[in-house]
Computed example of a mutant assay.
Amino acid sequence: MTGTTLHTPLFCDTALAARIERAEVDLISAVSRASVARSGVAGFVTPLARGAASFAGTDSPYTKVVGLGFGGVPTSAELAAVEEAYAAHGAPTSVELAHLGDPDLAALLSDRGYRLEGFENVLGLDLTVPDEPVAPAGIEVRRSGDDEFEAWLPVVVEASTHPDTQGVPWHDDFSAEAIETAQRDSAAAGLTRYAAFRDGVLAGGAEFRTVDGVAQLAGAGTAPAHRRHGIQSALLAARLTDARAAGCDVAVIVTQPGSRSHQNAQRRGFDLLYTRATLVKHP
């Protein structure tokens, strides 16, 4: 846990938001390309105004447009081409738009018939501030290798299909099959996995990736039978330790507004940096 030092909130200007969004573009693009290589799905990653439009399958959480608003506003022709590419697969065009991005973009998307369908929060932790995260007693966390993947996977899938109900519901509701496919794609993209054990039982898992000094904390989940025992705190502590060792200056986690994950992250010292709105245009 954090010490008694007075906490100074991490301020997020447009430069930091742009760096985090670039990291998100890099992550989504890497996993989408890995999906194409692993499964042969007819996917794509299309650059768009320094962001990217990704298609990794109709039911994939990596099928979306990310990173817009920090490299100019795309033209109507560029947006039309992306919308047609998604429509060719029978998929809507879903744009995750940071509220610190160019405000003209929201107006443009609204004019093109996009509808607001959800929000998610981006929280960050200043890793330049000294800290010694401590895992709860009785919980063991370690990196999880390929030999453990088939045991790790069902735990994370079960956690994802039985989310905590606190807070605003997720905009997307993915099936167990879609989540399993997405986890295989992220593994193929090289994300680092962590496994948490409670009394010797594999009880939770999480993922980790770094790019441009940003530590991306993703994919965390605890099996329902093991919740409220500190699994998430232990997974977070392990990844923050590794993020500092990797030379990162900021750690980022994405949560639903008002959720238990949001609450736990703020208790751990994360600050709300900005919100992403999900804007969707159906074919």
Rank of each mutant, 00 (worst) to 15 (best):
G167T: 08
G167S: 08
V168E: 13
V168W: 04
P169G: 04
P169N: 09
W170R: 15
W170V: 10
W170E: 15
D172F: 13
D172N: 15
D172E: 15
S175W: 12
A176F: 07
A176R: 09
A176G: 14
A176Y: 06
E177A: 14
A178C: 09
A178N: 00
I179C: 04
I179T: 05
I179A: 05
I179L: 05
E180K: 15
E180G: 15
T181R: 13
T181N: 11
T181Q: 10
A182T: 03
A182E: 00
A182R: 00
A182Y: 00
R184Y: 06
D185T: 06
D185Y: 04
D185Q: 14
S186W: 02
A187R: 12
G190K: 15
G190Y: 08
L191V: 14
L191H: 07
L191T: 07
T192W: 02
R193N: 04
Y194M: 10
A195H: 00
A195W: 01
A195R: 06
A196R: 01
F197H: 12
F197D: 02
R198V: 14
R198A: 10
R198P: 01
R198D: 12
R198S: 12
D199S: 14
D199T: 04
G200A: 12
G200F: 08
V201R: 05
V201S: 11
V201T: 09
V201I: 13
V201A: 10
L202C: 13
G204M: 02
G205H: 06
G205T: 03
G205E: 00
G205Y: 00
A206P: 05
A206I: 02
